[in-house]
Design a protein around this nucleic acid. Structure first.
Lengths: 163, 163
DNA sequence: CTTAATCCCGACTAAATTACTGGGTTAAAT
DNA sequence: ATTTAACCCAGTAATTTAGTCGGGATTAAG
């Protein structure tokens, strides 16, 4: 189980997809600009996500990506594993080439831990992440709503004011 | 929270230390040969572990490293953080430079998750890892003990037999 | 039918990180 | 003194990350 910035990008992109994909496919250009990840890098990540059927694609204009299944059925561990295409690589692969005794003992302790981390992330779905945050921010969004209605006008003024 | 092979090496080394350090300091050469990590790399890792007071050192012959405190008080998250000297680097550092609305939302979702992972690993101590595995393997080790007594003879025969 | 939007694909590359090598020095035990 | 270790630091090979580029293939819309 590895957890690098690559996995973070993948999880972030999937969260973006879960948040915006309810009413049709989301194109990578939008995710790229919202999440500040280069388009080509996203393409690489989504190729791997698609191979694991975590997303499905729609080609042509108006196309993009959709979650491969419900957000409640997509777990963080699956996303991380998909982009890391984990070749296991725990040093002593599997169990056969371990030397006798001590060496293996510490190694197995690591494996135990790694399994625990994996199990933990296998219990966190996209839906659960979103729901938690939604509850926390729902009042804030309600407070902000009347301002968002006028943002198409004010954001131009804001942009000017920034210079 | 990053979890790379570097962190794995550090946790593995600390587990080795916890297992062998009860009767005096353990030198890095021993850890190096038991865990197959280069000596110099271990030196780098232990310099960082020492700065965080996760280990203490004894110089000179017979010297080596000891756990900085009880294994029950050393948590996996602390070890991983020590060697990654995590400069946070979550893209949007802290919270101030986040743009309004959507961009920040997904980012916060990642932060939530990252906090959860961190919290999880902050609940796993070296002692708890060792105890769990020790219980599982204690009978196996007892069974093997009489064979280990003669291993200095038989391992040469085994090596020959392998060819 | 043509165009434009989009996914798809592979090869290349720059930057960062990991893992290691090799050169020392310092402290302590024999 | 000599030896055994921790300490320290500069360099560097290998790997991974992140991105660029240049092309396809597919399909909706005009």
């Amino acid at each position: 189980m590895r957890l690098t910035t690559k996995g973070r990008y993948a999880v972030t992109a999937m969260l973006d997809l879960a948040l915006h994909g309810e009413k049709g496919p989301v194109n990578l250009g939008d995710i790229s600009s919202r999440q500040h990840i280069s388009l080509s890098y996203l393409e690489q990540l989504f190729a791997k996500l698609r191979r694991q059927e975590l997303v499905s694609s729609v080609r042509g204009p108006g196309g993009g990506y959709l979650l491969g299944r419900s957000g409640a059925e997509i777990y963080v561990a699956q996303i991380v594993d998909a982009v890391n295409e984990s070749v296991d690589a725990t040093g002593c692969n599997g169990s056969t080439d371990c030397q006798h005794g001590e060496i293996c003992l510490t190694h197995h302790l690591w494996c135990d831990l790694s399994d625990q981390i994996h199990g933990f992330l296998n219990g966190i779905s996209l839906a659960s992440l979103i729901q938690r945050r939604e509850i926390q921010t729902i009042s804030a969004r309600q407070d902000k709503r009347y301002r968002d209605e006028r943002i198409s006008v004010t954001e131009i003024e804001d942009a000017h004011a920034a210079f």
